[in-house]
Design a protein around this nucleic acid. Sequence first.
DNA 1: AAATCATGGATTGTTGACAATAATGTTGTT
DNA 2: AACAACATTATTGTCAACAATCCATGATTT
Lengths: 231, 231
Amino acid sequence: MNLITEDIEPKTSDNKEQIKSDNLTDRLIEAIVNGDYPAGSKISEPELARIFNVSRGPLREAMMRVESLNLVERIPHVGARVVSLSLEKLIEVYAVREALEGMAANLACKHIDDEEISTLENLLGKHQSHIEQVDGASYFYQEGDIDFHYLIIKASKNEQLINLLCSQLYHLIRMYRFQSPRQHARPEKALYEHIAILNAIKARDPELAEMLMRRHIKNSRILIENEMLEE
Amino acid sequence: MNLITEDIEPKTSDNKEQIKSDNLTDRLIEAIVNGDYPAGSKISEPELARIFNVSRGPLREAMMRVESLNLVERIPHVGARVVSLSLEKLIEVYAVREALEGMAANLACKHIDDEEISTLENLLGKHQSHIEQVDGASYFYQEGDIDFHYLIIKASKNEQLINLLCSQLYHLIRMYRFQSPRQHARPEKALYEHIAILNAIKARDPELAEMLMRRHIKNSRILIENEMLEE
DNA sequence: AAATCATGGATTGTTGACAATAATGTTGTT
DNA sequence: AACAACATTATTGTCAACAATCCATGATTT
């Protein structure tokens, strides 16, 4: 009969939702990071389950994972709320980034390949022209900055490092950017720092690459600290 | 009526299992870390649920969290297995430790208080006498080593760092120690390195403390790499 | 006889209902 | 009128049954 069509259609049309609980995790993460559920707001299980068209079981499973990412805080018998971010926490995250991404730059010197290098060069080229066009700050650069760091982390070829940064801290950092979408204060300076880092990596100089990456992240942190003092 | 007794008794008698799902997570972690479920072995949900006297619901929720800790790997519709460890992965973990614990030692210089310093001094004193007694390697030292690192991480007062190291990587590291329980090859040398690190922290010298901590962890990593080459 | 397909069993994914706990609103007393 | 105790309600924690998927065993075909 039409068993064949039923067997094929799911693969072509809407097979993207293989396991509800798993994809639900990603959708929840995106929703929280995007700010669909504001910081500090309570998350109602029945309500969310209704919105996502699932039962509370898979939703709770997804919730546990999102909790491990520190995107929500759960209190037994009370409920879950989206984490309230603070500049103090953000500064703590930057200390962790400084350590881990510094190590990533170090390891990248040993493990990066030619293709990854040219990808990075193209990326920085695009940043250059964008900055010349819009003359300074643009929202584009925020994403571009993430891409640059992302690529170097991947180039370290250290799975533990990649997992920690890209699958755990990454979401938290993105959430901060969405919530306080201040422009990167000095995109030109950041670009030059990026170029210097890439040059060190191309020169296969681990100590220099690590030092430059750490200084680059430390500079970002100092901007945030100044911002904090102004308030 | 007897509402009072019913209200008090749970607090005194068996209130330790407040939430099944939560405590189950810890029990599962301990069981896996201790090797009750060997590396690579399959974990059956109905069987585990029976053993822990819970339903599959809370067990699955605990499972999701344990999966986030990288202690088990889950394949959709197939099941979960305890992760198979390898020296390659362990070396990757040590690179992460080098970066994060180096930063922890750095931050500890600024945030450690006198009480924490004396706790550390007492700990190292105990290690000293233990080494003199048993003349070298002892299992005791393994736990003691963890304690030393644990205290310095806490002293950093950086919640993100503490969470990452103590709540995430910590379990994985302990699991490795249980699975390949080689003695620390050079406990005397490790102790001297610990003493040097503590001295740098007492001297409030962040750069030196970080450098010494990184070298200390790097030395451990080199031991493992040599071990790997022998096989 | 080997390979392929089908069928049965077991395990995972999901659901809805039930139990336990906390928050809210109400009532009575001081 | 304000506070405290109680009842109600809503939400979370837990469970057992149902559906979907995978794996293994055996039958069938080439």
